[in-house]
Write a protein that binds this DNA or RNA. Sequence first.
DNA 1: GAGTATATTGAGAAAGATTCGCATTAGTAT
DNA 2: ATACTAATGCGAATCTTTCTCAATATACTC
Lengths: 136, 136
Amino acid sequence: MDSQDLKNVGLKATLPRLKILNFLHASPVRHMSAEDVYKSMLETGEDVGLATVYRVLTQFESAGLVTRHHFDEGHSVFELNLGEHHDHILCVKCGKVDEFFDPVIEDRQYDIARNQGYTITDHALVVYGVCPDCQD
Amino acid sequence: MDSQDLKNVGLKATLPRLKILNFLHASPVRHMSAEDVYKSMLETGEDVGLATVYRVLTQFESAGLVTRHHFDEGHSVFELNLGEHHDHILCVKCGKVDEFFDPVIEDRQYDIARNQGYTITDHALVVYGVCPDCQD
DNA sequence: GAGTATATTGAGAAAGATTCGCATTAGTAT
DNA sequence: ATACTAATGCGAATCTTTCTCAATATACTC
Protein backbone atom coordinates (compact mmCIF):
# COMPACT_ATOMS: atom_id res chain seq x y z
CA MET A 1 0.00 0.00 0.00
CA ASP A 2 2.96 2.28 0.35
CA SER A 3 5.92 2.65 -1.95
CA GLN A 4 8.25 1.04 0.54
CA ASP A 5 6.39 -2.25 0.08
CA LEU A 6 7.46 -2.26 -3.53
CA LYS A 7 11.04 -1.25 -2.82
CA ASN A 8 11.26 -3.96 -0.21
CA VAL A 9 10.75 -6.56 -2.88
CA GLY A 10 13.14 -4.91 -5.30
CA LEU A 11 10.66 -3.07 -7.48
CA LYS A 12 10.84 0.60 -8.34
CA ALA A 13 7.86 2.42 -6.84
CA THR A 14 6.12 3.59 -9.98
CA LEU A 15 2.63 5.02 -10.11
CA PRO A 16 1.07 2.13 -12.09
CA ARG A 17 2.56 -0.45 -9.73
CA LEU A 18 1.28 1.44 -6.70
CA LYS A 19 -2.16 1.79 -8.24
CA ILE A 20 -2.38 -1.89 -9.05
CA LEU A 21 -1.19 -2.95 -5.61
CA ASN A 22 -3.67 -0.63 -3.97
CA PHE A 23 -6.42 -1.89 -6.19
CA LEU A 24 -5.71 -5.49 -5.26
CA HIS A 25 -5.73 -4.61 -1.57
CA ALA A 26 -8.98 -2.69 -1.89
CA SER A 27 -10.81 -5.24 -4.02
CA PRO A 28 -13.44 -7.39 -2.32
CA VAL A 29 -12.86 -10.06 -4.98
CA ARG A 30 -9.68 -11.90 -4.17
CA HIS A 31 -9.18 -13.85 -7.39
CA MET A 32 -8.95 -11.86 -10.58
CA SER A 33 -7.61 -12.24 -14.09
CA ALA A 34 -5.39 -9.57 -15.60
CA GLU A 35 -8.32 -8.53 -17.73
CA ASP A 36 -10.52 -8.26 -14.63
CA VAL A 37 -7.99 -6.02 -12.93
CA TYR A 38 -7.58 -3.89 -16.03
CA LYS A 39 -11.30 -3.37 -16.62
CA SER A 40 -12.15 -2.80 -12.98
CA MET A 41 -9.41 -0.21 -12.67
CA LEU A 42 -10.66 1.64 -15.74
CA GLU A 43 -14.16 1.63 -14.27
CA THR A 44 -12.77 3.06 -11.05
CA GLY A 45 -11.25 5.86 -13.08
CA GLU A 46 -7.69 4.59 -12.79
CA ASP A 47 -5.81 4.89 -16.05
CA VAL A 48 -3.50 1.97 -16.78
CA GLY A 49 -2.48 0.03 -19.83
CA LEU A 50 -3.40 -3.61 -20.26
CA ALA A 51 0.17 -4.56 -21.09
CA THR A 52 1.28 -2.91 -17.88
CA VAL A 53 -1.24 -4.88 -15.85
CA TYR A 54 0.07 -8.12 -17.31
CA ARG A 55 3.68 -7.09 -16.76
CA VAL A 56 3.15 -5.84 -13.24
CA LEU A 57 1.15 -8.87 -12.14
CA THR A 58 3.92 -11.11 -13.41
CA GLN A 59 6.48 -9.03 -11.55
CA PHE A 60 4.36 -9.16 -8.41
CA GLU A 61 4.25 -12.90 -8.78
CA SER A 62 8.04 -13.15 -9.04
CA ALA A 63 8.34 -10.84 -6.06
CA GLY A 64 5.99 -13.02 -4.04
CA LEU A 65 3.33 -10.37 -3.65
CA VAL A 66 0.71 -12.34 -5.55
CA THR A 67 0.10 -15.93 -6.56
CA ARG A 68 -0.95 -17.02 -10.02
CA HIS A 69 -3.52 -19.78 -10.28
CA HIS A 70 -4.60 -21.92 -13.21
CA PHE A 71 -8.13 -22.95 -12.49
CA ASP A 72 -10.14 -24.77 -15.15
CA GLU A 73 -10.52 -21.68 -17.23
CA GLY A 74 -8.48 -20.53 -20.15
CA HIS A 75 -6.61 -17.81 -18.30
CA SER A 76 -4.53 -17.07 -15.21
CA VAL A 77 -6.09 -15.64 -12.09
CA PHE A 78 -4.11 -13.73 -9.51
CA GLU A 79 -4.50 -13.51 -5.77
CA LEU A 80 -2.84 -11.14 -3.37
CA ASN A 81 -0.65 -12.96 -0.87
CA LEU A 82 -2.03 -11.96 2.47
CA GLY A 83 -1.53 -14.65 5.03
CA GLU A 84 -0.42 -18.20 4.81
CA HIS A 85 -0.67 -20.74 2.04
CA HIS A 86 -4.04 -22.27 1.28
CA ASP A 87 -5.77 -24.34 -1.35
CA HIS A 88 -9.01 -23.64 -3.16
CA ILE A 89 -12.45 -25.08 -3.52
CA LEU A 90 -14.59 -23.57 -6.20
CA CYS A 91 -18.16 -23.81 -7.28
CA VAL A 92 -18.70 -25.11 -10.79
CA LYS A 93 -22.03 -23.33 -10.99
CA CYS A 94 -21.52 -19.80 -9.67
CA GLY A 95 -17.74 -19.63 -9.79
CA LYS A 96 -17.35 -18.72 -6.13
CA VAL A 97 -13.90 -19.46 -4.74
CA ASP A 98 -13.44 -20.61 -1.15
CA GLU A 99 -10.21 -21.44 0.59
CA PHE A 100 -9.01 -24.13 2.92
CA PHE A 101 -5.85 -25.42 4.49
CA ASP A 102 -5.32 -28.99 5.55
CA PRO A 103 -2.09 -29.96 7.29
CA VAL A 104 -2.68 -33.64 6.61
CA ILE A 105 -2.85 -33.08 2.87
CA GLU A 106 0.19 -30.83 3.01
CA ASP A 107 2.22 -33.46 4.83
CA ARG A 108 1.15 -36.26 2.53
CA GLN A 109 2.24 -34.26 -0.46
CA TYR A 110 5.70 -33.83 0.93
CA ASP A 111 5.90 -37.52 1.72
CA ILE A 112 4.76 -38.50 -1.74
CA ALA A 113 7.20 -36.13 -3.42
CA ARG A 114 10.05 -37.42 -1.28
CA ASN A 115 9.13 -41.02 -1.97
CA GLN A 116 9.32 -40.40 -5.69
CA GLY A 117 12.66 -38.63 -5.28
CA TYR A 118 11.31 -35.16 -5.99
CA THR A 119 12.26 -31.98 -4.19
CA ILE A 120 8.92 -30.26 -3.88
CA THR A 121 8.78 -26.60 -4.91
CA ASP A 122 5.09 -25.92 -5.01
CA HIS A 123 1.70 -27.46 -5.42
CA ALA A 124 -1.77 -26.59 -6.61
CA LEU A 125 -4.87 -28.27 -5.28
CA VAL A 126 -8.26 -27.22 -6.53
CA VAL A 127 -11.42 -28.99 -5.51
CA TYR A 128 -14.43 -28.45 -7.78
CA GLY A 129 -17.94 -28.84 -6.53
CA VAL A 130 -21.34 -27.30 -6.04
CA CYS A 131 -21.45 -24.75 -3.25
CA PRO A 132 -24.21 -24.65 -0.60
CA ASP A 133 -25.98 -21.78 -2.36
CA CYS A 134 -26.11 -23.62 -5.69
CA GLN A 135 -27.41 -27.01 -4.51
CA ASP A 136 -30.50 -27.88 -6.62
CA MET B 1 -8.87 -48.81 -30.62
CA ASP B 2 -11.84 -50.13 -32.52
CA SER B 3 -14.84 -48.30 -33.85
CA GLN B 4 -17.12 -49.87 -31.28
CA ASP B 5 -15.26 -47.98 -28.55
CA LEU B 6 -16.42 -44.76 -30.11
CA LYS B 7 -19.98 -45.86 -30.66
CA ASN B 8 -20.13 -47.05 -27.08
CA VAL B 9 -19.65 -43.50 -25.89
CA GLY B 10 -22.09 -42.07 -28.42
CA LEU B 11 -19.66 -40.87 -31.05
CA LYS B 12 -19.85 -41.69 -34.72
CA ALA B 13 -16.89 -43.80 -35.78
CA THR B 14 -15.19 -41.46 -38.18
CA LEU B 15 -11.71 -41.90 -39.55
CA PRO B 16 -10.18 -38.84 -37.84
CA ARG B 17 -11.60 -39.88 -34.48
CA LEU B 18 -10.29 -43.40 -34.87
CA LYS B 19 -6.88 -42.14 -35.90
CA ILE B 20 -6.66 -39.81 -32.93
CA LEU B 21 -7.79 -42.46 -30.48
CA ASN B 22 -5.29 -44.92 -31.90
CA PHE B 23 -2.57 -42.34 -31.76
CA LEU B 24 -3.24 -41.63 -28.10
CA HIS B 25 -3.16 -45.32 -27.29
CA ALA B 26 0.06 -45.83 -29.18
CA SER B 27 1.88 -42.78 -27.84
CA PRO B 28 4.54 -43.35 -25.20
CA VAL B 29 3.94 -39.81 -23.96
CA ARG B 30 0.78 -39.78 -21.91
CA HIS B 31 0.25 -36.03 -21.54
CA MET B 32 -0.04 -34.04 -24.72
CA SER B 33 -1.44 -30.73 -25.90
CA ALA B 34 -3.71 -30.55 -28.93
CA GLU B 35 -0.80 -29.06 -30.84
CA ASP B 36 1.44 -31.96 -29.75
CA VAL B 37 -1.09 -34.48 -31.01
CA TYR B 38 -1.55 -32.61 -34.26
CA LYS B 39 2.16 -32.26 -35.03
CA SER B 40 3.04 -35.78 -33.98
CA MET B 41 0.32 -37.20 -36.14
CA LEU B 42 1.49 -35.23 -39.15
CA GLU B 43 5.01 -36.51 -38.55
CA THR B 44 3.66 -40.04 -38.42
CA GLY B 45 2.07 -39.46 -41.81
CA GLU B 46 -1.46 -39.19 -40.48
CA ASP B 47 -3.37 -36.41 -42.14
CA VAL B 48 -5.69 -34.50 -39.79
CA GLY B 49 -6.75 -30.91 -39.36
CA LEU B 50 -5.79 -28.94 -36.27
CA ALA B 51 -9.37 -27.82 -35.70
CA THR B 52 -10.45 -31.43 -35.81
CA VAL B 53 -7.89 -32.40 -33.20
CA TYR B 54 -9.19 -29.69 -30.88
CA ARG B 55 -12.79 -30.66 -31.54
CA VAL B 56 -12.23 -34.37 -31.14
CA LEU B 57 -10.19 -34.03 -27.96
CA THR B 58 -12.96 -31.94 -26.45
CA GLN B 59 -15.51 -34.56 -27.50
CA PHE B 60 -13.35 -37.31 -26.03
CA GLU B 61 -13.22 -35.33 -22.82
CA SER B 62 -17.00 -35.04 -22.68
CA ALA B 63 -17.28 -38.73 -23.44
CA GLY B 64 -14.89 -39.59 -20.63
CA LEU B 65 -12.23 -41.05 -22.90
CA VAL B 66 -9.62 -38.46 -21.98
CA THR B 67 -9.01 -36.00 -19.17
CA ARG B 68 -8.00 -32.41 -19.71
CA HIS B 69 -5.41 -30.93 -17.37
CA HIS B 70 -4.38 -27.35 -16.71
CA PHE B 71 -0.81 -27.51 -15.53
CA ASP B 72 1.18 -24.31 -15.08
CA GLU B 73 1.50 -23.78 -18.79
CA GLY B 74 -0.56 -21.67 -21.09
CA HIS B 75 -2.44 -24.53 -22.70
CA SER B 76 -4.48 -27.65 -21.98
CA VAL B 77 -2.91 -31.08 -21.93
CA PHE B 78 -4.87 -34.25 -22.50
CA GLU B 79 -4.42 -37.69 -21.08
CA LEU B 80 -6.06 -40.92 -22.15
CA ASN B 81 -8.20 -42.39 -19.38
CA LEU B 82 -6.74 -45.82 -18.84
CA GLY B 83 -7.17 -46.97 -15.30
CA GLU B 84 -8.22 -45.25 -12.16
CA HIS B 85 -8.00 -41.66 -11.06
CA HIS B 86 -4.62 -40.28 -10.09
CA ASP B 87 -2.92 -36.99 -9.40
CA HIS B 88 0.26 -35.60 -10.89
CA ILE B 89 3.72 -34.59 -9.84
CA LEU B 90 5.76 -32.80 -12.41
CA CYS B 91 9.32 -31.65 -12.76
CA VAL B 92 9.75 -27.91 -13.12
CA LYS B 93 13.07 -28.44 -14.90
CA CYS B 94 12.53 -31.16 -17.49
CA GLY B 95 8.76 -31.19 -17.60
CA LYS B 96 8.45 -34.89 -16.82
CA VAL B 97 5.05 -35.89 -15.48
CA ASP B 98 4.71 -38.64 -12.88
CA GLU B 99 1.55 -39.90 -11.30
CA PHE B 100 0.44 -40.87 -7.84
CA PHE B 101 -2.64 -41.77 -5.91
CA ASP B 102 -3.09 -41.22 -2.21
CA PRO B 103 -6.26 -42.41 -0.49
CA VAL B 104 -5.61 -40.21 2.53
CA ILE B 105 -5.56 -37.07 0.41
CA GLU B 106 -8.64 -38.22 -1.48
CA ASP B 107 -10.57 -38.77 1.74
CA ARG B 108 -9.51 -35.48 3.26
CA GLN B 109 -10.72 -33.67 0.18
CA TYR B 110 -14.16 -35.16 0.49
CA ASP B 111 -14.27 -34.28 4.17
CA ILE B 112 -13.21 -30.72 3.54
CA ALA B 113 -15.74 -30.26 0.74
CA ARG B 114 -18.48 -31.68 2.90
CA ASN B 115 -17.53 -29.49 5.84
CA GLN B 116 -17.83 -26.42 3.68
CA GLY B 117 -21.19 -27.59 2.35
CA TYR B 118 -19.93 -28.43 -1.13
CA THR B 119 -20.88 -31.44 -3.20
CA ILE B 120 -17.56 -32.41 -4.73
CA THR B 121 -17.53 -33.06 -8.46
CA ASP B 122 -13.85 -33.19 -9.25
CA HIS B 123 -10.44 -32.11 -8.11
CA ALA B 124 -7.03 -31.34 -9.51
CA LEU B 125 -3.85 -31.77 -7.52
CA VAL B 126 -0.52 -31.02 -9.09
CA VAL B 127 2.71 -31.14 -7.14
CA TYR B 128 5.63 -29.27 -8.68
CA GLY B 129 9.20 -30.16 -7.88
CA VAL B 130 12.58 -31.20 -9.16
CA CYS B 131 12.73 -34.80 -10.26
CA PRO B 132 15.54 -37.19 -9.31
CA ASP B 133 17.23 -36.81 -12.69
CA CYS B 134 17.31 -33.03 -12.47
CA GLN B 135 18.75 -32.66 -8.97
CA ASP B 136 21.93 -30.55 -9.42
C1' DG C 1 16.39 20.74 -6.18
C1' DA C 2 17.97 20.23 -11.25
C1' DG C 3 20.37 16.89 -14.60
C1' DT C 4 21.08 12.48 -16.20
C1' DA C 5 21.08 7.52 -16.81
C1' DT C 6 17.97 3.95 -16.93
C1' DA C 7 13.83 1.38 -16.06
C1' DT C 8 8.94 1.64 -16.99
C1' DT C 9 4.90 2.82 -19.43
C1' DG C 10 1.32 2.60 -23.04
C1' DA C 11 -0.42 1.67 -27.58
C1' DG C 12 -0.57 -1.24 -31.04
C1' DA C 13 1.46 -5.10 -33.40
C1' DA C 14 2.43 -9.86 -32.88
C1' DA C 15 2.29 -14.43 -31.13
C1' DG C 16 0.10 -18.48 -29.26
C1' DA C 17 -4.02 -21.16 -28.22
C1' DT C 18 -8.51 -22.20 -29.36
C1' DT C 19 -12.96 -21.72 -31.65
C1' DC C 20 -16.03 -20.61 -35.54
C1' DG C 21 -18.20 -20.55 -40.28
C1' DC C 22 -19.07 -22.87 -44.09
C1' DA C 23 -18.54 -25.50 -48.27
C1' DT C 24 -17.15 -30.33 -49.01
C1' DT C 25 -17.01 -35.07 -47.58
C1' DA C 26 -18.03 -39.17 -45.11
C1' DG C 27 -21.08 -42.25 -41.89
C1' DT C 28 -25.33 -44.37 -41.26
C1' DA C 29 -29.82 -45.86 -41.48
C1' DT C 30 -33.03 -46.90 -44.97
C1' DA D 1 -27.15 -47.93 -53.53
C1' DT D 2 -29.56 -43.37 -51.69
C1' DA D 3 -30.32 -39.70 -48.96
C1' DC D 4 -30.02 -37.42 -44.63
C1' DT D 5 -27.14 -35.64 -41.31
C1' DA D 6 -23.09 -35.11 -38.85
C1' DA D 7 -18.11 -34.41 -39.22
C1' DT D 8 -14.08 -32.58 -41.54
C1' DG D 9 -10.70 -29.16 -42.99
C1' DC D 10 -9.44 -24.80 -44.20
C1' DG D 11 -8.95 -20.14 -43.14
C1' DA D 12 -10.82 -16.44 -40.63
C1' DA D 13 -11.92 -14.87 -36.15
C1' DT D 14 -11.40 -14.59 -31.14
C1' DC D 15 -9.12 -14.51 -26.84
C1' DT D 16 -5.18 -14.24 -23.88
C1' DT D 17 -0.72 -12.88 -23.41
C1' DT D 18 3.71 -11.04 -24.89
C1' DC D 19 6.64 -7.96 -27.52
C1' DT D 20 8.41 -3.58 -29.72
C1' DC D 21 9.59 0.89 -29.28
C1' DA D 22 9.10 5.76 -28.70
C1' DA D 23 7.79 8.74 -24.87
C1' DT D 24 8.03 9.30 -19.94
C1' DA D 25 8.82 8.80 -15.10
C1' DT D 26 11.93 7.29 -11.31
C1' DA D 27 15.99 7.37 -8.69
C1' DC D 28 20.63 8.73 -8.11
C1' DT D 29 24.29 12.23 -8.13
C1' DC D 30 25.85 16.71 -7.27
